[in-house]
Design a protein around this nucleic acid. Structure first.
Lengths: 201, 201
DNA sequence: TGCAAACTTTCAACTAGTGAAAACAATAAA
DNA sequence: TTTATTGTTTTCACTAGTTGAAAGTTTGCA
């Protein structure tokens, strides 16, 4: 389908991602230099920056894609579904999706999560990314329920949902050893936020 | 009271803050270099880093103080106050406090807010700071209502509250011209989150 | 085959941030 | 008031992320 040029670019991109994640795992994030990442992917340091805007960005390479999926979900709810139900199913689906990715092995996904939770720089970036996602989802939700849901309400709903899940999961990180436990924490926190929406209508 | 050494340090700190904020205002955040900030405060560039860990940190110089105030509030609720009521009054107080600071003029405060909302780097830092604050407040709340409120519930409550307010305020930035309007947006968003808590008990 | 467009490399520069040792100033003890 | 001690700032040297520009390659297409 796509020409050689396009395929080559995808390969370079992949090579950069793999080189980076492997090095981060082996030596740590801060300890890995861009020069090393580039070398591992057989390109010049300068070239790294035509694929990613920053060192942090490699770690979040699939964010845009995930965002699109989530948006698509919110854009076309099953007929008759309330905003709260829709958001509730979004949480379920997102958690499920994390496990079921082909591109990355389960270990890769877990490694990446640990990396993000461990490295301050990446944590900060994650907060930014998540924030942007929420804004986008709030807008979509507002459009989906045009008339019924003001922008403030949509933003408050999405913000409350993500805010409670995020804080609860992180605050319980020490206690949550397995993915199941994390999943359970997330669900319980989500229900706190969703109860608010339901009680308002 | 404090010795000369201590007073001198406070003066240098102030000088750095003022030099930085003034330059950020005049030339923009990214355009201002640490060398210029230091020069404006009559110290060496290296000295900047014994006062602040990074360029971003100057802008958030009073964060720790604010955090302590908020924590203190959550630690000693009026007898018989529910968690939801307590958090509700926290929001009111925080919004009020922003306006009533002596150290900075009203313009300074507003300039700083605009700076933070405008500059990506500072936005990112704000998210991190706010996140840390939430974690601290959730722990305090959990301790205050020991037995009644699990850590997950406390985190979900605080996360939902801050999450909804934050997202609603930002999402409505364009529409919110005055502080009063922002305040109103915040209150409305907070009520969405608080309704959830109240409906659960 | 040959030209134009897309990509990569090389080179040079700038800035945030860090470590270490030398220089300097403040405090307290003699 | 001199001296020893301790805290603070400066100077110097260096690393690493990031950006711009120009030169060099590769690919797509006529």
């Amino acid at each position: 389908m796509a020409g050689l040029r396009e395929r080559k670019k995808q390969r370079t991109r992949r090579a950069l991602i793999e080189s980076a994640l492997q090095l981060f795992d082996e030596k740590g994030y801060e300890e890995t230099t861009l020069a090393e990442i580039a070398a591992g992917a057989d390109v010049s340091t300068r070239t790294f920056f035509s694929y990613f805007a920053s060192k942090e960005d490699v770690v979040f390479y699939d964010t845009a894609e995930r965002m699109e999926l989530a948006k698509a979900m919110l854009a076309r709810p099953e007929p008759g579904m309330s905003p709260a139900d829709l958001l509730s199913s979004l949480i379920d689906n997102s958690l499920a999706w994390s496990s079921a990715q082909e591109e990355l092995t389960f270990e890769d996904a877990e490694l990446r999560l640990r990396l993000i939770l461990t490295e301050p720089t990446l944590q900060a970036r994650a907060l930014t990314v998540l924030f942007g996602t929420q804004l986008g989802l709030a807008r979509t939700l507002h459009e989906t329920y045009a008339g019924e849901l003001s922008m403030i309400e949509a933003a408050a709903a999405v913000g409350a949902l993500f805010g409670s899940v995020k804080l609860a999961v992180i605050a319980n990180l020490e206690h949550n050893r397995s993915l199941e436990e994390i999943w359970d924490t997330a669900r319980r926190a989500a229900d706190v936020a969703l109860a608010g929406m339901r009680s308002l209508g």
